[in-house]
Amino acid sequence: MKFRTIRATSTAVVLTGLLCTVATAPAQAATPVGWEGAALGLSAAQQQSQGEGVTVAVLDSGVYADHPALKGKVITGPDYFKDGLEAGDSQWGQHGTAMASDVLKVAPKAKILSVRVIDDKHEEERTEEDLKESFRKGNNPIADGINYAVQQGADVISMSLGGEDIFGGYSEDEAAALAYAARNGVTVLASAGNSAEVFNDVSYPAGYAGVIAVAATQQNGERASFSTVHSYNDVAAPGVDIVSATNTGGYEPVDGTSPACALAAGVVALMYGKNPKLSPAQVNDILIDTTHRPAGGASAVLGYGLIDADAAVKAAASPPKDTTSSVAYKGKEHLATPDGTSKTTHPEMEQGLWMTGLAAAGVGLVFLLGGVLLARSGRSKRTVPAGAPGMGQPQGYFPG
């Protein structure tokens, strides 16, 4: 049985270093807006809506609620990660605080519901005891967090996190929780993943049906080099040098599909502020219909293109009819994207990207075969922790 662990790593979401760690700002200060403001059309969008009355659940590593940019705007929910850390610890709320500030950068009058479902540890810092502890807990923080957010009346769920596993990271618990969110009209977004420079792995929860997967762009509008290329990509948002709040009261620039997801969640909050009766299907259709569509059309690179916040908020006032409904599963039929593209079939990709993927697959096969041989040779020496999980248990997660 392959070991699986809940994990967080800031290497996947590159903290590009302090361009400047800004001193603590006065109360109710806003997180600085950089190039992402113009790229998304925030100024015009915020003239129509600022997200008032909308609650965005940020499922992450915790949010430092006393940060000047967040003070009075954060409701702190339960800690489903249960590792004993608390607010104020240096390993608590690094990533989550940044993501909450990016949501509010777009929708300044929205409320944040913070639910802790991951930690901030780097992959290389995780110990064997951490691995055993994840087995002992036996819970699924992501599924628990989704269910809690829905029960608390969240309008939007933002998950700047992802899981990777060479055999796939699908979880029945998470799929059921996402279905619960859909039935209750909650729009869910997740970061597409930052593995394009490694193995371009499938990332969950972005890969689940019904989740809006957000890829990342750089300043010139092209895909950020780390942004995962995959058929589940729906839309894109800025993800390079996004100045975000820290858990120490300042600000620093962040790279990753994490801030891209948080910014997109802020746009959805603006849409709900304009029209609180929107369904998740309507939100999805509007975001897709109003993007800055790539010249070559939709693809696995940036989905349907960069979000246009101004156009999306305008369209929210008169949304397309929601024709979705619950249907019985009949076997071979499956969910598809709005244009009919199968969620399990990649659109045509650029030759360079295709060759990169083929090479990665070959390398992966070599590692897999090597791992099987090592596992067989060491089987008699290996001790599986008590209560090691089987199907449906939590897979590896890291900030997106």
Results as ranks from 00 to 15, higher is better:
N220G: 08
P205S: 07
G193V: 03
V211H: 11
V214L: 05
Q218S: 14
G210M: 04
Q219V: 11
V202N: 13
A206N: 04
R223Q: 12
F199G: 03
N194V: 09
Y204R: 12
A213T: 04
N220V: 00
P205I: 10
S225R: 12
A213H: 03
G221H: 06
N220A: 01
F199P: 05
S195C: 02
A196N: 15
S195H: 10
Q219S: 12
N194E: 09
I212T: 08
E197C: 00
G210A: 12
S225P: 01
A206C: 10
R223E: 05
T217P: 12
Q218V: 10
T217W: 03
A206Q: 03
S191F: 06
G193W: 06
S203D: 14
Q218E: 15
V214A: 03
I212Q: 01
V214D: 06
P205Y: 11
V198Y: 12
S225N: 11
S191T: 05
G210K: 10
Y204N: 07
T217N: 04
I212S: 05
S225A: 14
E197I: 10
V202R: 15
S203G: 00
N220R: 01
A215L: 00
A224F: 01
Q218G: 11
S225I: 07
E222V: 01
Y204C: 05
F199H: 14
D201Y: 13
S191E: 06
S203W: 09
S191N: 03
Q218P: 00
G207D: 14
S195G: 14
Y208I: 02
D201H: 14
A196C: 01
V214W: 02
S195V: 01
A215P: 04
S203Q: 12
V211S: 05
G210Y: 10
V202Y: 15
G210P: 09
G210F: 10
S203V: 10
E197G: 04
N220C: 03
V211W: 02
I212L: 11
A209I: 02
S203K: 11
V214H: 06
S203I: 04
N200C: 04
V198M: 13
Y208A: 07
